[in-house]
C-alpha cells in the first residue's frame, strides 16, 4: 500500500501549475521531497507570494519550467543558489511579480472574476516584463483626467500544497491566521495538505477553532507528516532548523553539492 505522502505526491503531475506558500506560512517540505522523488517535470510554480528552500530544491532537481514569484531567497541563510543559477542560465522561465499582485491574482480566482485592479507597478520593469498584465484607464475616475491602473488576471493553479498544524477526520484543516493558505485553496480544485497531527474531534464544532479552519469543502486530501515543514519552521509549533538551512545553502552552491545533499535528504525524507 502506498504511503500517505506518496498518495498526495501522485496527485501532482508534470506540467501542472502548482501554488506553494511563503517560507513562514507552512511549507510542506516532507511532501516536496516525495514530489521530487516522483520524478515529474515542467511545473509552473506560483509562489504565494515568495519562495524559499522548497522552490530552490524543486528548481535544482529539474522539476520547474516556469516560476511566477515576487522573490526567491533562503532568508537568513542567504540567496537561493539553484534558483539564481537557473535564472542566469535561462533554464527557468521567469515571471517576476510583486507580492500584492500575486494576492490580487488569487483574489480574482476566489471571486470568480477575470482580473483584479491594483495600484502601483506603473513605470516599473516588473510591469514591463509581464505581458499577461495590462493597464487600463480607470473607467470610474472622478474627472476627465487619465488614471492608469494595472489589471492582474486571475491565477488558477491546478493544485495547491501546504503544511499546517492539524486536521480532523472530516478533512477540515486548521490554518489559524495564515489566511493566504485559504486564498490558495479557493483558487484551485486540488488542495493537498500535510499536517503535524490529527485533531480528535470536529474543528468546525467549536467557534474558537472554526474561525481559523479551512473547511473540508476546499480540501482534497490530507496526510500526516510530523515535523513536515523541517528544516523550515511551522508557526506556533517549532522554529526553523537554522543549521540545516545553512547546510543546504552551502551545499546547493554547486551542482555536485546540491546532488549530494538531495541524495541524502530524499532518503531521509522517505525513511
Amino acid at each position: 500500500m502506498q504511503d500517505p505522502l506518496g498518495r498526495l505526491a501522485a496527485q501532482i503531475g508534470s506540467g501542472m501549475k502548482l501554488a506553494v506558500p511563503v517560507d513562514y506560512g507552512g511549507v510542506p517540505m516532507a511532501l516536496t521531497r516525495a514530489i521530487i522523488a516522483a520524478g515529474i517535470d515542467d511545473l509552473h510554480l506560483v509562489c504565494v507570494p515568495t519562495g524559499g528552500m522548497q522552490v530552490d530544491m524543486m528548481i535544482g532537481a529539474g522539476l520547474v519550467k516556469t516560476i511566477e514569484t515576487s522573490a526567491v531567497s533562503l532568508g537568513e541563510a542567504g540567496g537561493a543558489p539553484q534558483f539564481n543559477a537557473a535564472v542566469r542560465a535561462g533554464r527557468v522561465a521567469m515571471m517576476d511579480a510583486t507580492c500584492p499582485a500575486i494576492h490580487a491574482g488569487l483574489l480574482a480566482a476566489q471571486k470568480g472574476v477575470p482580473f483584479v485592479p491594483i495600484r502601483g507597478l506603473i513605470e516599473t520593469d516588473v510591469l514591463a516584463n509581464r505581458l499577461d498584465w495590462c493597464v487600463i484607464n480607470n473607467p470610474m475616475a472622478d474627472d476627465t483626467g487619465d488614471d492608469p491602473i494595472v489589471l492582474i488576471p486571475a491565477i488558477h493553479p491546478d493544485a495547491a500544497i501546504f503544511h499546517a498544524p492539524m486536521a480532523d477526520r472530516f478533512g477540515n484543516v486548521w490554518i489559524g491566521r495564515r489566511r493566504e493558505l485559504a486564498a490558495m485553496a479557493y483558487s484551485t480544485k486540488t488542495t493537498l495538505v500535510t499536517v503535524e497531527r490529527m485533531f480528535d474531534g470536529d474543528l468546525m464544532a467549536d467557534e474558537m477553532t472554526a474561525a481559523g479552519t479551512l473547511p473540508a469543502l476546499y480540501v482534497t486530501d490530507v496526510a500526516v507528516a510530523a515535523r513536515g515543514a523541517w528544516p523550515l519552521g511551522l508557526w506556533g509549533e517549532y522554529d526553523g532548523d537554522v543549521a540545516e538551512q545553512h547546510r543546504y545553502a552551502q551545499a546547493a552552491r554547486t551542482p555536485e553539492g546540491f546532488a549530494a545533499y538531495m541524495a541524502s535528504d530524499v532518503r531521509a525524507g522517505a525513511a
Binding site: P49, T50, T69, S70, A71, V72, S73, G79, A80, F83, N84, V87, R88, D96, A97, T98, C99, P100, A101, I118, R119, G120, L121, I122, T124, V126, L127
Partner: peptide
C-alpha cells in the same frame, strides 16, 4: 540575480 522585487513595486507608491 537577486531574490526579486517583493512588495516594493506596490508599497513605494
Amino acid at each position: 540575480r537577486w531574490p526579486g522585487s517583493f512588495g516594493s513595486a506596490f508599497l513605494y507608491f
